[in-house]
Amino acid sequence: MSRTLYFGFLFVFLILLQVFVLNNIQFLGYINPYLYIIFVFVYPLKEKRIPFLFASFMLGLGIDFFSDSGGIHAFSILTIAYLRLFFVKVFFRKYPIDYPFFVLNLEPFGKKFNYVVTLTFLHHFILFSFANFSFQNISHVLLNTLFSSIFTLILYFLSIFIFSKKQ
């Protein structure tokens, strides 16, 4: 029960953080972190995925409501939420039987890095392709994906470093 409450709180917190703090950064005019995708990283792995997929979709849609972007955030976060288990299998070699014991922060840093980087780049690429919606400025999309992903990743690893409990 407290776990559900925790993720409910995280859900609202991530929307507010993204909309009122991070969307106003606009570093150099266009580089912007999209930290709300950490919802996909921290949500526990489960066999039954429907609540998780739905929650991710609603998180994206919530951000779309605030940033007038149709459904691009919903589409891109849902894509990585669905592909998450595939990448867990590829990078960590974990199968459904290991899911209850899987904690991302206890995994080796190299594997964790690959996993997070892949999902972040994938998400940002889909997001910026739809936000641009044309092949005209494809270089713009690629540059934006690269720089914004780096920004998001820096923020992610910094926040992990700050908020992780010291052992």
Partner: peptide
């Protein structure tokens, strides 16, 4: 199928927004 359904909804919203 659930994933496809949600993606489809998101796509409709994207196209309507344009």
């Amino acid at each position: 199928l659930f994933f496809l359904l949600l993606q489809f909804i998101a796509l409709i919203l994207i196209f309507n927004n344009l």
